[in-house]
Design a protein around this nucleic acid. Structure first.
Lengths: 204, 204
DNA sequence: GAAAAAAGTTGAAGCTGTTCAAATTTGTAG
DNA sequence: CTACAAATTTGAACAGCTTCAACTTTTTTC
């Protein structure tokens, strides 16, 4: 089919998303007004709301692209983890962390996290939470892979362990984006201090 | 001194805070307008802003009262923890959880958490983060107490371990307030599944 | 006790996310 | 090609948080 209408629709949505990525990174999520996005995307304010339910919805769409990439990178590590429990866990965690600021500023992360907590029932919030869950499952998958290789004690239940590790790395990441002065290196150091002793405890 | 001015000032602040507690619990943080608080407290909208910087600031003040109480309860457990590493850790965690909904609804928690993440530099955000830090330190203190009693391996560093346990209980609590259908019992079960194996690993 | 200064209160105006009824554009039928 | 229907766009209107210049109350000064 690909009628004129469909083509224009897809084009408008693309333009709005592109405007959002550009503006959010340049001026920060907070400072950007819907009117600014509409102007840059060459549509009206009402049209923006035709494609995205709220301002937060636009941000989540941007964040989701980033997290999908990270999940793909993580899958490669789970498929063939480095030797050693601590090395494997930290490789996955650093993969998450190191890519985190590639497309998103700390301010954008803060806003996205705040949105997902404040409005968990909305499509936005659900979408963000679903991504979190997939990240958590990926950590569990890694532990399962390490158990299969005989590196992690077989009697331990991988699921709660994976959740524990993910919850910790996620909370440390929250602290990281809350503090504009904190470097990626400091972030790595902190998570290492907490993850390594655990890794040693669960190693066979 | 206690001049008339000081007395009226303290009285107004008290009335605003009381109005906030009442209204937030009754109608939810989101639904309450500053105008509603002003009306109930018998002041003008402008006066509310004279005592609190933002709407979020009022919420943080309410939440802070709650967390202070929880810290006091927690201190009693740290002073004389139950026997057994898992029992002691879970006693402290349950103390936190069980009191959490006494004065605050899930919606209020969500809003407060979102605020602290979104605006970490404001007095509000800093205040909330400081409370989190004190909670985290309390968990570390408990582990130190258990080490002193010889129940936790002496060679383990209590600080990162305490942070790990706190980060996990905090993240699980976030998931709890994000899901209106989740019960306190389910919350306890989840944190137990994750904390107990760790407790066993660190036990002497 | 009156006048001046200091502190605090007030509510209308400003700003920005969101809604919705009218207008426009695109697709379809005869 | 014209008339009609369906889908989409539009921007003015609305709501609620926040600001601030004018006003009121309390304190200080003489």
């Amino acid at each position: 089919m690909a009628g004129l209408r469909e083509k224009q629709k897809a084009d408008r949505e693309r333009r709005i998303l592109k405007a959002a990525v550009t503006k959010f990174r340049a001026d920060g999520y907070r400072a950007v007004r819907i009117e600014d996005l509409a102007e840059l995307a060459e549509v009206s304010v009402g049209t923006v709301y035709n494609y995205y339910q709220t301002k937060g919805d636009i941000l989540i769409a941007v964040v989701a692209m980033e997290v999908e990439e990270v999940l793909a990178s993580g899958a490669r590590i789970v498929a063939d983890p480095p030797l050693g429990v601590d090395a494997a866990l930290l490789a996955l965690i650093f993969e998450y962390y190191d890519h985190s600021l590639e497309y998103l500023s700390k301010e954008m992360w803060r806003s996205a996290m705040a949105l997902s907590i404040e409005a968990p029932g909305t499509p936005n919030g659900r979408r963000y939470s679903a991504l979190d869950r997939r990240l958590s499952l990926q950590v569990t998958d890694l532990i399962l892979a390490l158990q299969a290789r005989g590196e992690v004690r077989a009697e331990l239940d991988a699921r709660p362990l994976g959740e524990l590790v993910f919850n910790n790395l996620n909370q440390v990441f929250i602290d990281f984006v809350k503090d504009d002065a904190m470097t990626l290196e400091a972030l790595r150091d902190r998570v290492t201090a907490q993850t390594r002793p655990l890794a040693q405890l669960i190693t066979t």
